[in-house]
Design a protein around this nucleic acid. Structure first.
Length: 859
RNA sequence: GCCCGUGUGGCGGAAUGGUAGACGCAGCAGACUUAAAAUCUGCAGCCUUUUUUGGGCGUGGGGGUUCGAGUCCCUCCACGGGCACCA
């Protein structure tokens, strides 16, 4: 890759790009203004965590958003396109520890550094709305929202078994535990009991699930992932009478009440109250529970657990048969789902089957099937008394009705979704506005006591939460009794910060200390186009949906769904290089030797060229956006990042591809220079082009360009940026070949060039401004309107029609658009290839699809 | 295990059931140049001496629907992702 591009550079981006960025800034070009006479369009990219450096993944995300924002602006929308920082979080604390610095300092410096990087990409942001979630002006409102939701009963505190990350010394939400490990540290998560703050997201399970159907602007995949995560199952509880003296009844939950006659035993979770109470008097059960507890933490049990259990000696009465069923404690029954107890039907459930085989329990088939047991599908009931002969769906309804009438069961719905644990035992987050009073207990602060600022003077030399060690901050008075009280030292999960930032962006002046959500907020909401990575499909997007509904219920806002359209872009990937000893290498430490093999530059060691993987620092397969911008300019990078690969798919970085885009930018510049020297300019433009007097060739060019306008418009509407780029390239190639016509048809080509510049401007805005100005157009191309096209010019006068015989291509004829079928067939039959293919066969059928194809069926 | 998605040249990828491979990368040839780079102009799925304006094959495999299938249906395979004892 040439690093010194000055010699081959005929378009000087290094002058042009900063110039236009400054002019846009000075003119406040991208300041969003709500305008009731225009349709609104809120374009938002998931805001950035200030890690310190912008990476290519950011560039892809924000370029996609900027193209949408600029395109919609040109099409006449009032566009809101804000930018901000997701600035609280653990890495700031870790970095502070490492560098003996302060999280605030680290965060602020990173924001400053990343902001200057982002600015060099020329995004059309309204910077006046910028904020960071660690701004007291932002989090004070979050504290206010907390109090309102607390009052509404949507937040509660509970002693709870939590996911404890032993490395980060922090509690994790269920969503942050991946394969039993912390999502950030990768450490094996332990179970601990701690008092925790929760948000009642489960109150919204049904709404969050049902509204997914309305979100037709979301990828099906994301909706499905959320649906599975919410995990609704409909069924019923059944009350079994037991032989135990201490526990008269045992409630179980099932989605298959139809299989009740196949029940041969019951199973309790080891954490079930009955299990625990039995353990007090039964050392064997106590030992079993202890062993299970240990097993839960060990890795191999998370991977693949064998089913095992222990008999309790208790039996229950079958609700319909004169029969007693034994009760077991089984490791595969979860306490935090359903009632923590099940009835087992080995014939129709894989887990029950495995358990029954292991402990020699009976297996009774109650749904007929051709295949082997266990059979979990639907079918006709057998061995089931009054249900015999019914279909499973009918039988379900019938049996539940009967249980309800008997008072032995009720219809019930359970969800996999759990309440959201929002407590974090960490310093760098939003303080929870609550105090602990010896007399009054947990007391929320009053709104007038806000904000509770995070103290700056903390020390990180001790284990755990620095707020706990602060000499004064904790000590305060109780808002109720004025007595001595201590502040809550847990801070809020940073996912709370990102659950409503999109609402705050709607506020004209985010630094305004008084207004939370002024009246114009609902004018901008919902977000019309949200863009971000698929990795947030569940966590962030589910929390944000919940928060929006909850804030509506608290009376703050009127909308319930925050994101109308969602686009999830793919990852940016690149090849990896490794030494034989496994050490990763940067691309610039590697070269190809004369045999075409890869070797290190410094010692010539042979290199393993690894898989193409997501760019990451640890694998060293990263490219630095700063370097690219320095050598090729922002327009080249923006163009490249949306070329070729559809935005939802993974993008494979290649230096050659980047250089191809660089060549395109320069080729375009040469085209514009030659156009200018032919007299193409603003003054020659006329919106009244008389198409009727154009010569044949120019008319064809004009029509072809009309199609280009349509193609690019359609491509950008459907977010197919790669297709838009292909059509732009096509158009440049086409115009290049018609250079000789420019001078003779200045009016037509001036209009074409003007419109072309607008078409390219969302993707490569700087060179477009430069050429806009060079050709004498006024103001900014960034402020001009999107070109329109007329469908009537899209119809070609002559069509090349493919001709098939028995579905195989045998030639083609040129016909006029309105040709009658008889003439078309006549012309087609005259083709030598067609005659040859038909030969001695007789024509059975003739098909002519207007303007598309001719097919002769011959046998 | 369950659910979802994807499979097209050397590569990234185009294609409302209607000429498969647009556009680009890499490649090849020519022009310009002392030369190289850059640039410009062409060629380019595979097989096949009917010197080719011919023929055959071709969108993961097999089958089906259709005048016609990359596209729709069935089935198998491979890869990727999500969930994972959720009763």
């Amino acid at each position: 890759m040439p690093t010194n591009t000055s010699e081959i550079c005929n378009y000087d981006f290094s002058l042009s790009e900063p110039k236009w960025q400054k002019l846009w800034d000075d003119a406040k070009t991208f300041k969003s203004e709500f305008n009731a006479s225009k349709p609104k369009c809120y374009v938002l990219e998931m805001f950035m965590y200030p890690s310190g450096k912008v990476h290519i993944g950011h560039v892809r995300n924000y370029t996609l958003g900027d193209i949408v924002a600029r395109f919609q602006r040109a099409r006449g929308y009032a566009v809101l396109h804000p930018v901000g920082w997701d600035a609280f979080g653990l890495p700031a604390e870790n970095a502070a520890l490492k560098n003996k610095s302060h999280p605030k300092k680290w965060t602020r410096e990173n924001i400053a550094a990343m902001k200057s990087q982002i600015k060099t990409l020329g995004f059309s942001y309204d910077w006046s709305r910028e904020f960071a979630t660690c701004d007291p002006q932002y989090y004070q409102f979050q504290q206010k929202l907390f109090l309102a939701m607390y009052e509404k009963g949507l937040i509660y505190r509970k002693e709870s078994e939590v996911n404890w990350d032993p490395v980060d010394q922090c509690v994790l939400a269920n969503e942050q535990v991946i394969d039993g490990r912390g999502w950030r540290s990768g450490a094996l998560v332990e179970k601990r009991k701690l008092p925790q703050w929760f948000m009642k997201i489960t109150n919204y399970a049904e709404e969050l699930l049902n509204d997914l159907e309305k979100l037709d602007g979301w990828p099906e995949k994301v909706r499905l992932m959320q649906k599975n995560w919410i995990g609704k199952s409909e069924g019923c509880t059944i009350k079994f009478k037991t032989t135990s003296r201490t526990h008269e009844y045992l409630d179980v939950f099932t989605t298959r009440p139809d299989t009740i006659f196949g029940a041969t035993f019951l199973a309790l979770s080891p954490n079930h109250p009955i299990s625990i109470s039995l353990a007090k008097n039964d050392p064997q059960i106590a030992a079993f529970l202890e062993e299970h507890k240990k097993g839960c933490v060990a890795e191999e049990f998370i991977e693949k657990q064998e089913k095992y259990g222990i008999a309790t000696g208790i039996e229950v009465q079958h609700p319909f048969l004169d029969k007693k069923l034994p009760v077991y404690i089984a490791n595969f029954v979860l306490m935090n789902y359903g009632t923590g107890a099940i009835f087992a039907t080995p014939a129709h459930d894989e887990r029950d089957y495995a358990f029954a085989i292991k402990y020699g329990l009976p297996i009774i088939q109650t749904v007929s099937s051709d295949g082997p047991l266990p059979y979990t599908g639907d079918g006709t009931l057998i061995n089931s008394e009054f249900l015999n002969g019914m279909d499973t769906t009918v039988a379900k309804r019938e049996i539940v009705d009967k249980l309800c009438k008997m008072g032995a069961g009720e219809r019930k719905i359970f969800y996999k979704l759990r309440d959201w644990g929002i407590s974090r035992q960490r310093y760098w987050g939003c303080p929870i506005p609550v105090v602990h009073c010896k007399k009054c207990g947990v007391v929320p602060l009053r709104t007038e006591d806000l904000p509770i600022p995070l103290p700056d003077d903390v020390e990180f030399d001790k284990q755990g939460n620095p707020l706990d060690h602060h000499p004064t901050w904790r000590h305060t008075s109780c808002p109720l009794c004025r007595g001595e009280a201590t502040r809550e030292t847990d801070t809020l999960d940073t996912f709370v910060d990102s659950s409503w930032y999109f609402l705050r962006f709607c506020v004209d002046d985010p630094a305004n200390p008084d207004l939370l959500f002024p009246r114009d907020i609902t004018s901008w909401m919902p977000v019309d186009q949200y863009i971000g990575g698929i990795e947030h499909a569940i966590l962030h997007l589910l929390y944000a949906r919940f928060f929006t509904g909850a804030l509506a219920d608290c009376g703050f806002i009127k909308i319930r769904e925050p994101f109308k359209n969602l686009f999830t872009q793919g990852m940016v990937c690149s090849v990896t290089y490794q030494r034989k000893n496994g050490e990763w290498l940067f691309p610039n430490e590697v070269r190809r030797n004369s045999n075409g093999e890869f070797e290190t530059i410094d010692d010539g060691e042979e290199i393993i060229v690894g898989r193409i993987e997501k760019m990451s620092k640890s694998k060293k397969n990263v490219v630095d956006p700063d370097e690219i911008i320095k050598n090729y300019g922002a327009d080249t990078l923006r163009l490249f990042i949306v070329s070729d690969t559809p935005p939802e798919k993974d993008f494979y970085w290649s230096d050659e591809g980047l250089i191809g885009c660089w060549r395109f930018i320069n080729r375009l510049w040469r085209l514009l220079l030659s156009a200018k020297s032919c007299g193409i300019c603003a003054a020659e433009c006329s919106d009244q082009i008389n198409v009727d007097i154009l010569g044949h060739d120019v008319l064809e060019t004009y029509k072809s360009f009309q199609r280009t306008i349509k193609n690019i418009t359609v491509a950008l509407e459907s977010r197919s940026m790669n297709l838009a780029v292909a059509h732009l390239r096509d158009c440049v190639n086409y115009l290049y070949a018609r250079g000789d016509d420019f001078e003779k048809n200045k009016a037509v080509f001036s209009v074409i060039f003007r419109d072309f510049i607008v078409l390219l401007s969302p993707i490569a805005p700087h060179i477009c401004e430069e050429s806009w100005s060079m050709l004498g157009f006024e103001k900014f191309v960034s402020n001009s309107s999107w070109p329109t096209y007329d469908e009537k010019y899209l119809v070609a006068s002559a069509i090349t029609l493919p001709v098939q015989v028995n579905g195989k291509l045998r030639g083609s004829v040129i016909i006029s658009a309105q040709e009658i079928p008889e003439i078309v067939f006549e012309k087609a039959l005259a083709l030598e290839g067609v005659r040859k293919a038909i030969g001695d066969l007789s024509i059975k059928n003739k098909i002519y699809v207007e303007g598309k194809i001719v097919n002769f069926v011959a046998v």
